[in-house]
Simulated scan of single mutants.
Amino acid sequence: MTTPLRYTAFATTPAGGNPAGIVLDASGLDDDGMLRIAADLGYSESAFVTPAPAPAGDRAYHVRYFSPKAEVPFCGHATVATAVALAERHGTGDFLFHTRAGEVPVTVEGAPGTPLRATLTSVAPHVEDVRAQDVTEALAALDWPAADLDPAFPPRIAYAGARHLVLAAGSRERLADLDYDMDRLTALMHRLDLATVQLVWRESASVFHVRDPFPVGGVVEDPATGAAAAAFGAYLRTLGFVPEASVLTLHQGADMGRPGELTVTLVAGDARVRVSGTAVPIA
């Protein structure tokens, strides 16, 4: 099926969450063809699927992700959307996605007639320091005064399949006011090899509001970002802001008029991060 499907992830209605294109049989497409479809769709990412050799009983696929501008190593919302689309056609259960970032197991659960829920397990994450001058440049591009940051959450670069610069806003109002210099932020992101900038505000011990500028992908902002959610979960655990075993709720997209909800689960003894959400077709 080379005709792209359209799904939205991390929402229960087509009006919410993050839309993704899905090509369930991309075996006849080359890189240029995939990029052209992604650009035509205009979503932050689209997923392109081909079967992968697997032991008996495993449902394994090669999955590649393209923004309107370039291929990206991993995309969380398109993973959730793709897994749900496959489950609607082949039944719920376990899938294995081979991505450029590594192997990503996905489990889909739910009953017919209700939005199915997919849980992806990230590749091994890590968190690294970021230079002060790079933080200064990011803030200048965002037009955020340094005093508007939450000093309790230091800037870091977090990875769980893609790299994200984590910056914590000191207030919900600061997070809501996003009007940045796209060219300046794009240049910094290319230099640091960032997928998005993960802007966060902590509502409570386990609830966060997040936004993700994504100019390197050709869109101003990503409405719901599974890869960044996984990276942020690793950030919180690595820096000791949440227990080793935690369930976190991330709200994203409300400021864009596309509200979505992502669940991040941290499991004791397993460095990988799980990100869950529903996905539904877009008519």
Rank of each mutant, 00 (worst) to 15 (best):
161 G>D: 06
171 S>F: 05
159 Y>L: 05
179 D>N: 09
171 S>M: 04
157 I>D: 05
172 R>K: 10
174 R>V: 14
157 I>G: 06
167 L>Y: 06
178 L>G: 01
164 H>A: 09
178 L>H: 00
170 G>Y: 07
169 A>K: 00
166 V>I: 15
154 P>L: 05
170 G>R: 07
165 L>R: 13
176 A>G: 14
163 R>G: 02
171 S>Q: 03
171 S>R: 13
157 I>H: 03
153 F>D: 13
174 R>K: 13
179 D>C: 02
159 Y>V: 12
167 L>N: 06
168 A>Y: 02
154 P>S: 11
159 Y>A: 04
161 G>V: 10
173 E>V: 06
177 D>R: 10
152 A>R: 14
162 A>Q: 02
151 P>Q: 12
168 A>E: 06
162 A>I: 01
162 A>E: 02
177 D>S: 12
157 I>K: 04
177 D>L: 01
175 L>N: 04
172 R>S: 14
164 H>S: 11
168 A>S: 15
152 A>N: 14
170 G>Q: 11
164 H>F: 06
152 A>Q: 14
164 H>K: 05
176 A>E: 13
152 A>E: 13
163 R>S: 14
167 L>I: 13
168 A>P: 02
155 P>W: 06
169 A>C: 15
165 L>Y: 09
172 R>F: 02
159 Y>Q: 07
170 G>P: 11
171 S>K: 03
156 R>M: 04
173 E>D: 14
154 P>Q: 10
154 P>Y: 11
167 L>S: 07
157 I>P: 06
178 L>N: 02
155 P>M: 05
165 L>T: 13
153 F>K: 12
177 D>Y: 00
178 L>F: 00
172 R>D: 15
171 S>G: 06
173 E>H: 13
157 I>C: 06
162 A>Y: 00
176 A>S: 12
169 A>L: 05
154 P>E: 09
178 L>M: 01
160 A>V: 07
160 A>D: 02
178 L>K: 00
173 E>M: 03
